[in-house]
């Protein structure tokens, strides 16, 4: 007892110990925040990734900046770049996680956020169509299409998918491109507004491996005014031996090609859009059969006559809950 006490009462030792402890606490917190919470498995994962990299990769696509002036990195060199989280969001809450940190100024209120998302998806779909890039609606956006062909009012972002081939083309030819889109903000007065969007491709988009889970968004179509975005994920046969014939994004959503193709041509938010061939199976698989019939959700009620989700007032919401 006494010797131990003596040890700790030595000021220098004490100081050293405290500093060490504080440092380790800070480091572990940082590692957790950065690595999605797996400080211990970090090394193992890196090793696995390197092994995966040895299997033939999809197009290695240096960004245009890298291309200029210097030789493009070889496959091996590129694989050596440690993966870091490329897309940074404005914050960790469900709401703030749907703004790009670079362009975020303030959260968009409920009354206007749907309009911004509408312009976002319209500009995305029309631009991709004009560039002859194939893309289709996914996740909550697809569910919104199923109900009335619109973004659901409680949704924070828009989701679209592309094939691995299209993703490679995006990375190769369109990364960093800026597009202006004329939004008809007021159809009655004919008022127009030019909005600017950035197509930003994740530098790790063409890595086939799942990575560390930080980069499962392969590209974004970003409204530079607000920081709101379309999440673009590419579907690739990531594990031909383990799951042959399954095309998946890095967030483990898997599809069989015949489930997706041929795509169905339809509309979304008033512009031409495409949905997967078996859209019903995709929705049921992801959200369950209930998602096709539940008429009250997230404080909104489905109005079968106007075919719109209407926000319930507070007393109604309480009744439901």
């Amino acid at each position: 007892m006494r010797p131990l006490a003596a040890l700790f009462s030595n000021h220098k030792v004490l100081l050293l110990l405290t500093v060490l402890l504080v440092l380790s606490a800070i480091l572990s917190t940082a590692a957790v925040a950065r690595g999605g919470g797996q400080p211990f498995s970090f090394y193992v994962q890196q090793k696995q990734e390197q092994q995966q990299q040895q299997t033939p990769l999809s197009q290695q696509t240096p960004s245009p900046q890298e291309n200029q002036g210097q030789k493009a990195l070889s496959e091996g060199q590129r694989a050596l770049i440690p993966e870091y989280k490329y897309f940074q969001e404005a914050g960790g809450t469900l709401e703030l996680a749907h703004y790009d940190a670079r362009f975020f100024t303030a959260p968009i209120p409920y009354t206007t956020h749907r309009t911004i998302l509408t312009h976002l998806i319209r500009s995305y779909l029309t631009t991709f169509a004009s560039l002859n890039l194939e893309t289709w609606l996914a996740h909550g956006t697809l569910l919104g299409w199923y109900w009335n062909g619109r973004i659901m009012p409680w949704d924070f972002d828009v989701d679209a998918q592309v094939s691995g081939t299209t993703l490679a083309i995006l990375a190769e030819q369109h990364n960093g491109s800026v597009h202006t889109y004329t939004a008809h903000t007021n159809p009655t007065t004919g008022q127009e507004e030019n909005r600017t969007y950035l197509l930003d491709v994740n530098p790790f988009a063409t890595r086939v491996g799942w990575g560390r889970g930080e980069n499962f968004i392969d590209a974004r179509w970003i409204d530079v005014e607000t920081g709101m975005f379309v999440d673009i994920t590419g579907l690739v046969e990531r594990d031909p031996r383990g799951q042959p014939g399954v095309w998946s994004c890095k967030n483990y959503h898997g599809y069989r090609p015949e489930e997706l193709f041929p795509l169905r041509e339809t509309e979304f938010e008033g512009v031409p859009a495409m949905v997967p061939w078996e859209y019903e199976g995709v929705l049921v698989g992801e959200y369950g059969e209930k998602s096709l019939v539940v008429t009250e959700w997230e404080g909104h009620r489905w109005d079968p006559d106007s075919k719109e989700w209407v926000k319930m007032n507070e007393t109604e919401t309480e009744e439901v809950l």
């Binding site: 469900l94 989701d159 959200y287």
Partner: peptide, 8 residues
């Protein structure tokens, strides 16, 4: 029923 994409 959102598109947060954080599905299991």
């Amino acid at each position: 029923m959102t598109s947060t994409g954080a599905a299991a």
